[in-house]
Nucleic acid binder design. Structure first.
Lengths: 251, 251
DNA sequence: TTCCCTCATTGACCATGATCAATCGCTTCT
DNA sequence: AGAAGCGATTGATCATGGTCAATGAGGGAA
Protein backbone atom coordinates (compact mmCIF):
# COMPACT_ATOMS: atom_id res chain seq x y z
CA UNK A 1 0.00 0.00 0.00
CA UNK A 2 2.80 2.44 0.91
CA UNK A 3 4.56 4.07 -1.96
CA UNK A 4 8.35 3.77 -2.19
CA UNK A 5 10.30 6.68 -0.92
CA UNK A 6 11.17 9.21 -3.55
CA UNK A 7 14.79 10.15 -3.94
CA UNK A 8 14.44 13.51 -2.24
CA UNK A 9 12.58 11.93 0.63
CA UNK A 10 15.35 9.45 1.21
CA UNK A 11 17.81 12.29 1.36
CA UNK A 12 15.73 13.88 4.06
CA UNK A 13 16.19 11.10 6.54
CA UNK A 14 18.38 12.18 9.45
CA UNK A 15 20.33 8.94 9.37
CA UNK A 16 21.80 9.86 6.02
CA UNK A 17 21.99 13.59 6.64
CA UNK A 18 25.28 15.08 5.46
CA UNK A 19 25.63 17.21 8.57
CA UNK A 20 24.44 14.65 11.10
CA UNK A 21 27.88 14.56 12.74
CA UNK A 22 28.46 18.31 13.08
CA UNK A 23 25.10 20.02 13.41
CA UNK A 24 23.13 20.86 16.51
CA UNK A 25 21.91 17.27 16.66
CA UNK A 26 25.42 15.81 16.83
CA UNK A 27 25.05 14.52 20.36
CA UNK A 28 21.47 13.36 20.04
CA UNK A 29 20.51 9.75 20.58
CA UNK A 30 18.36 7.72 18.21
CA UNK A 31 15.27 8.57 20.20
CA UNK A 32 16.01 12.24 20.25
CA UNK A 33 16.72 12.23 16.53
CA UNK A 34 13.40 10.53 15.91
CA UNK A 35 11.69 13.29 17.82
CA UNK A 36 13.48 15.99 15.86
CA UNK A 37 12.79 14.16 12.65
CA UNK A 38 9.07 14.23 13.36
CA UNK A 39 8.95 18.01 13.60
CA UNK A 40 11.59 19.14 11.13
CA UNK A 41 10.94 20.46 7.64
CA UNK A 42 13.10 21.71 4.80
CA UNK A 43 13.22 24.93 2.90
CA UNK A 44 15.34 25.97 -0.07
CA UNK A 45 16.55 29.39 -1.14
CA UNK A 46 18.04 30.79 -4.33
CA UNK A 47 21.26 32.83 -4.38
CA UNK A 48 20.49 36.40 -3.39
CA UNK A 49 17.23 35.45 -1.71
CA UNK A 50 16.53 36.94 1.69
CA UNK A 51 15.92 34.40 4.43
CA UNK A 52 15.01 36.85 7.17
CA UNK A 53 15.25 40.62 7.50
CA UNK A 54 16.56 42.41 10.57
CA UNK A 55 13.88 43.05 13.15
CA UNK A 56 11.39 40.78 11.47
CA UNK A 57 9.57 38.16 13.48
CA UNK A 58 11.17 34.76 12.96
CA UNK A 59 9.05 31.73 13.60
CA UNK A 60 11.61 29.11 12.68
CA UNK A 61 15.24 28.21 13.18
CA UNK A 62 17.51 25.35 12.32
CA UNK A 63 20.57 24.04 10.55
CA UNK A 64 22.18 25.03 7.30
CA UNK A 65 22.35 21.73 5.44
CA UNK A 66 23.94 23.01 2.30
CA UNK A 67 25.12 26.32 0.85
CA UNK A 68 26.40 29.60 2.24
CA UNK A 69 24.43 32.22 4.15
CA UNK A 70 25.56 35.71 5.09
CA UNK A 71 24.40 37.61 8.15
CA UNK A 72 24.80 41.35 7.83
CA UNK A 73 23.85 44.64 9.42
CA UNK A 74 23.03 47.77 7.48
CA UNK A 75 23.17 51.34 8.76
CA UNK A 76 20.48 53.82 7.81
CA UNK A 77 22.74 55.44 5.21
CA UNK A 78 23.47 52.12 3.54
CA UNK A 79 26.83 51.18 5.01
CA UNK A 80 26.84 47.45 5.44
CA UNK A 81 28.93 45.04 7.52
CA UNK A 82 28.75 41.30 7.35
CA UNK A 83 28.64 39.85 10.88
CA UNK A 84 28.40 36.16 10.09
CA UNK A 85 29.19 33.84 7.25
CA UNK A 86 27.54 30.47 7.70
CA UNK A 87 28.39 27.17 6.09
CA UNK A 88 26.92 23.69 6.14
CA UNK A 89 26.11 22.49 9.68
CA UNK A 90 26.02 25.99 11.16
CA UNK A 91 22.95 26.89 13.19
CA UNK A 92 20.69 29.72 12.09
CA UNK A 93 18.34 31.63 14.31
CA UNK A 94 18.16 32.45 17.96
CA UNK A 95 16.29 30.37 20.49
CA UNK A 96 14.44 32.41 23.10
CA UNK A 97 14.25 35.48 20.85
CA UNK A 98 11.52 36.30 18.42
CA UNK A 99 13.50 38.47 16.08
CA UNK A 100 17.00 38.66 14.78
CA UNK A 101 19.19 41.79 14.63
CA UNK A 102 20.64 41.17 11.17
CA UNK A 103 19.63 40.23 7.64
CA UNK A 104 20.25 36.64 6.60
CA UNK A 105 20.71 36.15 2.87
CA UNK A 106 21.42 33.05 0.81
CA UNK A 107 24.64 33.52 -1.13
CA UNK A 108 24.65 30.19 -2.93
CA UNK A 109 21.70 27.83 -3.34
CA UNK A 110 20.76 27.01 0.23
CA UNK A 111 18.95 24.19 1.96
CA UNK A 112 17.77 24.58 5.54
CA UNK A 113 16.57 21.96 8.02
CA UNK A 114 14.09 23.91 10.11
CA UNK A 115 11.95 23.70 13.20
CA UNK A 116 9.18 25.93 14.38
CA UNK A 117 10.77 28.03 17.07
CA UNK A 118 8.36 27.17 19.88
CA UNK A 119 8.61 23.48 19.15
CA UNK A 120 12.37 23.58 19.02
CA UNK A 121 12.56 25.43 22.31
CA UNK A 122 10.35 22.86 23.92
CA UNK A 123 12.49 19.99 22.66
CA UNK A 124 15.64 21.82 23.67
CA UNK A 125 14.38 22.27 27.23
CA UNK A 126 13.84 18.54 27.47
CA UNK A 127 16.96 17.46 25.63
CA UNK A 128 20.24 18.46 27.27
CA UNK A 129 22.28 16.97 24.44
CA UNK A 130 20.89 19.58 22.07
CA UNK A 131 21.40 22.41 24.47
CA UNK A 132 24.96 21.30 25.11
CA UNK A 133 25.80 21.15 21.43
CA UNK A 134 24.20 24.52 20.84
CA UNK A 135 26.25 26.05 23.65
CA UNK A 136 29.37 24.54 22.15
CA UNK A 137 28.56 25.96 18.73
CA UNK A 138 27.84 29.41 20.16
CA UNK A 139 31.17 29.37 21.98
CA UNK A 140 32.90 28.57 18.70
CA UNK A 141 31.07 31.37 16.96
CA UNK A 142 32.05 33.76 19.69
CA UNK A 143 35.68 32.78 19.19
CA UNK A 144 35.36 33.36 15.47
CA UNK A 145 33.66 36.71 16.09
CA UNK A 146 36.58 37.78 18.27
CA UNK A 147 39.15 36.88 15.65
CA UNK A 148 37.03 38.81 13.23
CA UNK A 149 37.05 41.83 15.53
CA UNK A 150 40.84 41.82 15.55
CA UNK A 151 40.80 41.69 11.78
CA UNK A 152 38.32 44.56 11.46
CA UNK A 153 39.91 46.77 14.06
CA UNK A 154 43.61 46.34 13.46
CA UNK A 155 44.56 44.61 10.25
CA UNK A 156 45.58 46.35 7.03
CA UNK A 157 43.66 45.81 3.81
CA UNK A 158 46.26 43.36 2.58
CA UNK A 159 46.21 41.41 5.84
CA UNK A 160 42.43 41.32 5.74
CA UNK A 161 42.39 39.74 2.31
CA UNK A 162 45.10 37.26 3.24
CA UNK A 163 43.25 36.40 6.45
CA UNK A 164 40.06 35.79 4.56
CA UNK A 165 41.86 33.43 2.22
CA UNK A 166 43.32 31.57 5.19
CA UNK A 167 39.84 31.19 6.65
CA UNK A 168 38.57 29.75 3.38
CA UNK A 169 41.63 27.53 3.17
CA UNK A 170 40.87 26.23 6.64
CA UNK A 171 37.30 25.37 5.73
CA UNK A 172 38.41 23.75 2.51
CA UNK A 173 41.04 21.70 4.27
CA UNK A 174 38.51 20.56 6.84
CA UNK A 175 36.07 19.50 4.20
CA UNK A 176 38.71 17.70 2.18
CA UNK A 177 39.73 16.13 5.49
CA UNK A 178 43.32 15.36 6.29
CA UNK A 179 45.54 17.82 8.05
CA UNK A 180 46.48 19.44 4.78
CA UNK A 181 48.91 21.89 6.32
CA UNK A 182 52.07 21.35 4.35
CA UNK A 183 52.87 19.72 1.07
CA UNK A 184 50.71 20.18 -1.99
CA UNK A 185 49.48 23.62 -2.89
CA UNK A 186 45.88 24.56 -2.31
CA UNK A 187 43.28 25.56 -4.84
CA UNK A 188 40.55 27.61 -3.21
CA UNK A 189 37.07 28.24 -4.51
CA UNK A 190 35.88 31.58 -3.16
CA UNK A 191 32.24 31.24 -2.11
CA UNK A 192 31.43 34.95 -2.35
CA UNK A 193 31.77 37.95 -4.66
CA UNK A 194 34.22 40.81 -4.20
CA UNK A 195 31.36 42.89 -2.90
CA UNK A 196 30.51 40.35 -0.21
CA UNK A 197 34.19 40.13 0.69
CA UNK A 198 34.27 43.89 1.08
CA UNK A 199 31.27 43.67 3.41
CA UNK A 200 32.96 40.89 5.32
CA UNK A 201 36.26 42.71 5.71
CA UNK A 202 35.08 46.26 6.25
CA UNK A 203 36.59 47.45 2.97
CA UNK A 204 35.36 48.74 -0.37
CA UNK A 205 35.15 46.53 -3.39
CA UNK A 206 37.91 48.56 -5.10
CA UNK A 207 40.33 47.98 -2.26
CA UNK A 208 39.54 44.27 -2.25
CA UNK A 209 40.32 44.14 -5.93
CA UNK A 210 43.55 46.09 -5.58
CA UNK A 211 44.78 43.88 -2.78
CA UNK A 212 44.06 40.74 -4.76
CA UNK A 213 46.20 42.22 -7.48
CA UNK A 214 48.92 43.11 -5.00
CA UNK A 215 48.99 39.60 -3.53
CA UNK A 216 49.11 38.20 -7.04
CA UNK A 217 52.00 40.46 -8.03
CA UNK A 218 53.81 39.46 -4.83
CA UNK A 219 53.50 35.83 -5.92
CA UNK A 220 51.52 34.86 -2.83
CA UNK A 221 48.46 33.81 -4.78
CA UNK A 222 47.69 32.86 -8.37
CA UNK A 223 44.30 33.79 -9.77
CA UNK A 224 42.98 31.10 -12.09
CA UNK A 225 39.93 33.29 -12.42
CA UNK A 226 38.23 35.78 -10.12
CA UNK A 227 36.72 32.98 -8.04
CA UNK A 228 39.56 30.45 -8.04
CA UNK A 229 42.74 31.11 -6.10
CA UNK A 230 45.82 28.92 -6.02
CA UNK A 231 48.08 29.21 -3.01
CA UNK A 232 51.59 27.99 -3.81
CA UNK A 233 52.91 28.54 -0.31
CA UNK A 234 50.45 28.58 2.52
CA UNK A 235 53.05 29.82 4.99
CA UNK A 236 53.63 32.91 2.88
CA UNK A 237 49.89 33.56 2.87
CA UNK A 238 49.58 33.12 6.62
CA UNK A 239 52.48 35.45 7.01
CA UNK A 240 50.75 38.06 4.88
CA UNK A 241 47.69 37.57 7.07
CA UNK A 242 49.63 38.64 10.14
CA UNK A 243 48.93 35.36 11.91
CA UNK A 244 51.32 34.23 14.59
CA UNK A 245 50.75 31.23 12.39
CA UNK A 246 52.93 28.38 13.41
CA UNK A 247 50.62 25.42 13.32
CA UNK A 248 48.86 23.85 10.38
CA UNK A 249 45.46 24.58 8.95
CA UNK A 250 43.45 22.67 11.44
CA UNK A 251 43.18 23.55 15.10
CA UNK B 1 31.32 27.30 69.92
CA UNK B 2 31.03 28.69 66.38
CA UNK B 3 32.43 32.11 65.81
CA UNK B 4 30.17 34.76 64.30
CA UNK B 5 30.57 35.32 60.60
CA UNK B 6 32.97 38.04 59.74
CA UNK B 7 31.74 40.79 57.51
CA UNK B 8 33.55 39.57 54.43
CA UNK B 9 32.27 36.07 54.99
CA UNK B 10 28.70 37.24 55.11
CA UNK B 11 29.26 39.01 51.81
CA UNK B 12 30.38 35.76 50.29
CA UNK B 13 27.12 33.98 50.83
CA UNK B 14 25.27 33.41 47.57
CA UNK B 15 21.98 34.49 49.09
CA UNK B 16 23.29 38.01 49.47
CA UNK B 17 25.43 38.01 46.35
CA UNK B 18 25.07 41.24 44.37
CA UNK B 19 24.91 39.39 41.05
CA UNK B 20 22.71 36.52 42.17
CA UNK B 21 19.91 37.64 39.84
CA UNK B 22 21.96 38.14 36.67
CA UNK B 23 24.92 35.77 36.78
CA UNK B 24 25.22 32.24 35.47
CA UNK B 25 23.41 30.99 38.57
CA UNK B 26 20.32 33.12 37.95
CA UNK B 27 18.05 30.19 37.25
CA UNK B 28 19.48 27.89 39.88
CA UNK B 29 17.33 26.52 42.68
CA UNK B 30 18.26 26.61 46.37
CA UNK B 31 19.73 23.13 46.12
CA UNK B 32 21.77 23.94 43.09
CA UNK B 33 23.05 27.14 44.66
CA UNK B 34 24.08 25.18 47.71
CA UNK B 35 26.09 22.86 45.52
CA UNK B 36 27.78 25.76 43.72
CA UNK B 37 28.39 27.45 47.04
CA UNK B 38 30.26 24.43 48.31
CA UNK B 39 32.78 24.51 45.48
CA UNK B 40 33.15 28.19 44.73
CA UNK B 41 36.01 30.40 45.84
CA UNK B 42 36.90 34.04 45.42
CA UNK B 43 39.89 35.81 43.99
CA UNK B 44 40.72 39.51 43.79
CA UNK B 45 42.82 41.41 41.29
CA UNK B 46 44.35 44.87 41.20
CA UNK B 47 43.91 47.26 38.29
CA UNK B 48 46.32 46.33 35.53
CA UNK B 49 46.80 42.82 36.84
CA UNK B 50 46.67 40.01 34.34
CA UNK B 51 44.05 37.36 35.06
CA UNK B 52 45.01 34.96 32.28
CA UNK B 53 47.28 35.21 29.26
CA UNK B 54 46.32 34.04 25.78
CA UNK B 55 47.14 30.39 25.21
CA UNK B 56 47.79 29.72 28.87
CA UNK B 57 46.14 26.78 30.56
CA UNK B 58 43.17 27.94 32.58
CA UNK B 59 42.04 25.78 35.43
CA UNK B 60 39.22 27.96 36.65
CA UNK B 61 36.28 29.97 35.41
CA UNK B 62 33.41 31.88 36.91
CA UNK B 63 31.56 35.12 37.38
CA UNK B 64 32.78 38.67 37.58
CA UNK B 65 31.29 39.85 40.87
CA UNK B 66 32.66 43.34 40.80
CA UNK B 67 34.89 45.49 38.62
CA UNK B 68 35.74 45.64 34.94
CA UNK B 69 37.78 43.14 32.93
CA UNK B 70 39.07 43.53 29.39
CA UNK B 71 39.65 40.69 26.96
CA UNK B 72 42.10 41.52 24.22
CA UNK B 73 44.15 40.03 21.45
CA UNK B 74 47.64 41.16 20.52
CA UNK B 75 49.40 40.64 17.21
CA UNK B 76 53.07 39.73 17.09
CA UNK B 77 54.05 43.30 16.22
CA UNK B 78 52.14 44.71 19.17
CA UNK B 79 48.90 45.86 17.58
CA UNK B 80 46.14 45.21 20.07
CA UNK B 81 42.37 44.88 19.81
CA UNK B 82 40.01 44.55 22.70
CA UNK B 83 37.49 41.78 22.01
CA UNK B 84 35.48 41.87 25.20
CA UNK B 85 34.73 44.26 28.01
CA UNK B 86 33.20 42.50 30.97
CA UNK B 87 31.20 43.96 33.83
CA UNK B 88 29.66 42.62 37.00
CA UNK B 89 27.71 39.38 36.44
CA UNK B 90 29.46 38.54 33.16
CA UNK B 91 30.91 35.08 32.86
CA UNK B 92 34.65 34.59 32.38
CA UNK B 93 36.29 31.54 30.92
CA UNK B 94 35.29 28.84 28.53
CA UNK B 95 33.79 25.54 29.61
CA UNK B 96 35.06 22.57 27.63
CA UNK B 97 38.28 24.35 26.63
CA UNK B 98 41.52 24.33 28.50
CA UNK B 99 42.91 27.58 27.22
CA UNK B 100 41.60 30.92 26.17
CA UNK B 101 42.54 32.80 22.97
CA UNK B 102 42.86 36.25 24.53
CA UNK B 103 44.40 38.05 27.48
CA UNK B 104 42.09 38.91 30.36
CA UNK B 105 43.18 41.90 32.42
CA UNK B 106 41.60 43.61 35.41
CA UNK B 107 40.94 47.25 34.59
CA UNK B 108 39.50 48.28 37.94
CA UNK B 109 39.78 46.36 41.21
CA UNK B 110 38.15 43.04 40.40
CA UNK B 111 36.50 40.30 42.39
CA UNK B 112 35.82 36.92 40.83
CA UNK B 113 33.61 34.08 42.01
CA UNK B 114 35.41 31.03 40.64
CA UNK B 115 35.11 27.31 40.18
CA UNK B 116 37.67 24.78 39.19
CA UNK B 117 36.97 24.07 35.57
CA UNK B 118 36.48 20.32 35.85
CA UNK B 119 34.18 20.71 38.80
CA UNK B 120 32.13 23.36 37.09
CA UNK B 121 31.78 21.27 33.96
CA UNK B 122 30.57 18.36 36.01
CA UNK B 123 27.98 20.48 37.78
CA UNK B 124 26.93 22.04 34.51
CA UNK B 125 26.33 18.64 32.92
CA UNK B 126 24.03 17.76 35.76
CA UNK B 127 22.32 21.13 36.07
CA UNK B 128 20.36 22.24 33.03
CA UNK B 129 19.47 25.55 34.63
CA UNK B 130 23.12 26.56 34.58
CA UNK B 131 23.66 25.42 31.04
CA UNK B 132 20.55 27.28 29.91
CA UNK B 133 21.63 30.50 31.53
CA UNK B 134 25.11 30.15 30.09
CA UNK B 135 23.69 29.64 26.61
CA UNK B 136 21.56 32.72 27.06
CA UNK B 137 24.54 34.76 28.15
CA UNK B 138 26.64 33.56 25.23
CA UNK B 139 23.86 34.48 22.81
CA UNK B 140 23.81 37.97 24.28
CA UNK B 141 27.56 38.25 23.97
CA UNK B 142 27.37 37.14 20.38
CA UNK B 143 24.85 39.88 19.70
CA UNK B 144 27.12 42.42 21.33
CA UNK B 145 30.08 41.11 19.34
CA UNK B 146 28.14 41.60 16.13
CA UNK B 147 27.23 45.18 16.94
CA UNK B 148 30.87 45.68 17.75
CA UNK B 149 31.85 44.28 14.35
CA UNK B 150 29.65 46.84 12.63
CA UNK B 151 31.30 49.54 14.69
CA UNK B 152 34.83 48.35 13.88
CA UNK B 153 34.23 47.74 10.21
CA UNK B 154 32.08 50.65 9.16
CA UNK B 155 31.82 53.48 11.63
CA UNK B 156 33.87 56.68 11.55
CA UNK B 157 36.07 57.68 14.48
CA UNK B 158 33.46 60.11 15.71
CA UNK B 159 30.69 57.52 15.48
CA UNK B 160 32.86 55.03 17.31
CA UNK B 161 33.35 57.36 20.25
CA UNK B 162 29.69 58.30 20.35
CA UNK B 163 28.71 54.61 20.14
CA UNK B 164 31.00 53.78 23.01
CA UNK B 165 29.42 56.48 25.12
CA UNK B 166 25.97 55.14 24.28
CA UNK B 167 27.05 51.68 25.39
CA UNK B 168 28.28 53.06 28.69
CA UNK B 169 25.12 55.11 29.04
CA UNK B 170 23.09 51.95 28.54
CA UNK B 171 24.98 50.12 31.26
CA UNK B 172 24.73 53.07 33.59
CA UNK B 173 21.01 53.39 32.99
CA UNK B 174 20.52 49.69 33.64
CA UNK B 175 22.42 49.88 36.87
CA UNK B 176 20.57 52.99 38.00
CA UNK B 177 17.42 51.12 36.96
CA UNK B 178 14.45 52.91 35.48
CA UNK B 179 14.06 53.36 31.78
CA UNK B 180 16.11 56.52 31.84
CA UNK B 181 15.69 57.30 28.18
CA UNK B 182 14.39 60.83 28.18
CA UNK B 183 14.28 63.56 30.72
CA UNK B 184 17.23 64.38 32.93
CA UNK B 185 20.68 64.50 31.46
CA UNK B 186 23.14 61.71 32.09
CA UNK B 187 26.46 61.86 33.85
CA UNK B 188 28.69 59.02 32.74
CA UNK B 189 31.69 57.64 34.53
CA UNK B 190 34.04 56.15 31.94
CA UNK B 191 35.43 52.90 33.28
CA UNK B 192 38.53 52.87 31.08
CA UNK B 193 41.42 55.05 29.95
CA UNK B 194 41.75 56.66 26.52
CA UNK B 195 44.23 53.96 25.63
CA UNK B 196 41.79 51.18 26.47
CA UNK B 197 39.11 53.00 24.51
CA UNK B 198 41.44 53.11 21.53
CA UNK B 199 41.96 49.35 21.85
CA UNK B 200 38.23 48.86 22.14
CA UNK B 201 37.38 50.97 19.11
CA UNK B 202 40.23 50.11 16.77
CA UNK B 203 41.66 53.63 16.89
CA UNK B 204 44.76 55.34 18.24
CA UNK B 205 44.74 57.20 21.50
CA UNK B 206 45.28 60.51 19.65
CA UNK B 207 42.22 60.02 17.51
CA UNK B 208 40.16 59.15 20.57
CA UNK B 209 41.28 62.34 22.22
CA UNK B 210 40.59 64.46 19.16
CA UNK B 211 37.10 63.07 18.75
CA UNK B 212 36.27 63.73 22.39
CA UNK B 213 37.29 67.30 21.75
CA UNK B 214 35.20 67.42 18.59
CA UNK B 215 32.10 66.09 20.36
CA UNK B 216 32.67 68.58 23.12
CA UNK B 217 32.99 71.48 20.68
CA UNK B 218 29.82 70.29 18.96
CA UNK B 219 28.02 70.54 22.30
CA UNK B 220 27.11 66.86 22.30
CA UNK B 221 29.05 66.11 25.47
CA UNK B 222 30.49 68.10 28.35
CA UNK B 223 33.70 66.89 29.93
CA UNK B 224 33.67 67.44 33.68
CA UNK B 225 37.08 65.82 33.62
CA UNK B 226 38.71 63.20 31.41
CA UNK B 227 36.73 60.42 33.06
CA UNK B 228 33.37 62.11 33.61
CA UNK B 229 31.10 62.93 30.69
CA UNK B 230 27.80 64.75 30.84
CA UNK B 231 25.34 64.14 28.05
CA UNK B 232 22.84 66.99 27.77
CA UNK B 233 20.86 65.39 24.96
CA UNK B 234 21.03 61.66 24.60
CA UNK B 235 19.24 61.73 21.26
CA UNK B 236 21.97 63.94 19.83
CA UNK B 237 24.58 61.48 21.05
CA UNK B 238 22.75 58.49 19.59
CA UNK B 239 22.49 60.40 16.37
CA UNK B 240 26.23 61.02 16.35
CA UNK B 241 26.67 57.29 16.96
CA UNK B 242 24.90 56.46 13.73
CA UNK B 243 22.27 54.42 15.52
CA UNK B 244 18.90 53.99 13.87
CA UNK B 245 18.16 55.00 17.42
CA UNK B 246 14.50 55.36 18.03
CA UNK B 247 13.89 53.60 21.31
CA UNK B 248 15.15 54.43 24.75
CA UNK B 249 18.27 53.23 26.47
CA UNK B 250 17.02 49.86 27.47
CA UNK B 251 16.09 47.13 25.03
C1' DT C 1 26.32 37.72 -33.53
C1' DT C 2 25.24 41.73 -30.80
C1' DC C 3 23.52 43.78 -26.79
C1' DC C 4 23.15 44.06 -22.11
C1' DC C 5 24.06 43.17 -17.45
C1' DT C 6 26.83 42.01 -13.62
C1' DC C 7 31.17 41.49 -11.53
C1' DA C 8 35.87 42.87 -11.47
C1' DT C 9 39.88 45.75 -12.38
C1' DT C 10 42.45 49.97 -12.76
C1' DG C 11 43.43 54.95 -12.40
C1' DA C 12 43.40 59.70 -10.38
C1' DC C 13 42.49 62.19 -6.54
C1' DC C 14 41.10 63.02 -1.82
C1' DA C 15 39.92 62.54 3.21
C1' DT C 16 40.24 60.16 7.35
C1' DG C 17 42.82 58.63 10.75
C1' DA C 18 47.86 57.22 11.86
C1' DT C 19 52.42 58.73 13.12
C1' DC C 20 55.78 61.58 15.27
C1' DA C 21 56.46 65.00 18.58
C1' DA C 22 55.69 68.58 22.01
C1' DT C 23 53.09 70.16 25.90
C1' DC C 24 49.81 70.11 29.69
C1' DG C 25 47.69 68.74 34.07
C1' DC C 26 47.22 65.91 37.82
C1' DT C 27 48.99 62.72 41.25
C1' DT C 28 52.50 60.76 43.93
C1' DC C 29 57.02 60.43 45.92
C1' DT C 30 60.86 62.47 48.21
C1' DA D 1 57.86 72.65 47.20
C1' DG D 2 60.05 70.31 43.43
C1' DA D 3 60.63 66.34 40.50
C1' DA D 4 59.05 62.43 38.24
C1' DG D 5 55.55 59.87 35.93
C1' DC D 6 51.37 58.97 33.64
C1' DG D 7 47.36 60.01 31.07
C1' DA D 8 45.50 63.27 27.97
C1' DT D 9 45.55 66.91 24.57
C1' DT D 10 47.09 69.33 20.53
C1' DG D 11 49.76 70.19 16.31
C1' DA D 12 52.08 69.04 11.82
C1' DT D 13 52.65 65.80 8.42
C1' DC D 14 51.93 61.46 6.04
C1' DA D 15 49.90 57.14 4.25
C1' DT D 16 46.21 54.04 3.79
C1' DG D 17 42.18 53.19 1.99
C1' DG D 18 37.84 55.61 0.18
C1' DT D 19 35.52 58.04 -3.70
C1' DC D 20 34.51 58.94 -8.36
C1' DA D 21 35.01 57.39 -12.87
C1' DA D 22 36.27 54.67 -16.83
C1' DT D 23 37.18 50.19 -18.77
C1' DG D 24 37.40 45.14 -19.13
C1' DA D 25 35.75 40.39 -19.06
C1' DG D 26 32.38 36.84 -18.94
C1' DG D 27 27.51 35.10 -19.47
C1' DG D 28 22.97 34.83 -21.00
C1' DA D 29 18.97 36.48 -24.14
C1' DA D 30 17.13 37.93 -28.47
Amino acid sequence: MSKPLLDHQIKERCATCPIRDRAVCTYSSEDEIARLESIKFYRNYEPGQEIVAAGENVEFLGSLVEGVVSLSKTMSDGRRQMVGLMFASDFLGRPMRNSVPYDAVAITPVRLCLFRRRQFEKVMMETPSIERRLLEMMLDELDAARDWMLLLGRKTAREKIASFLVIIARRTALKASGNGAEGKELELELPITREAMADYLGLTIETVSRQFTALRKAGIIVLSDARRVRVPDLMALMDAAGEDGDGGLVA
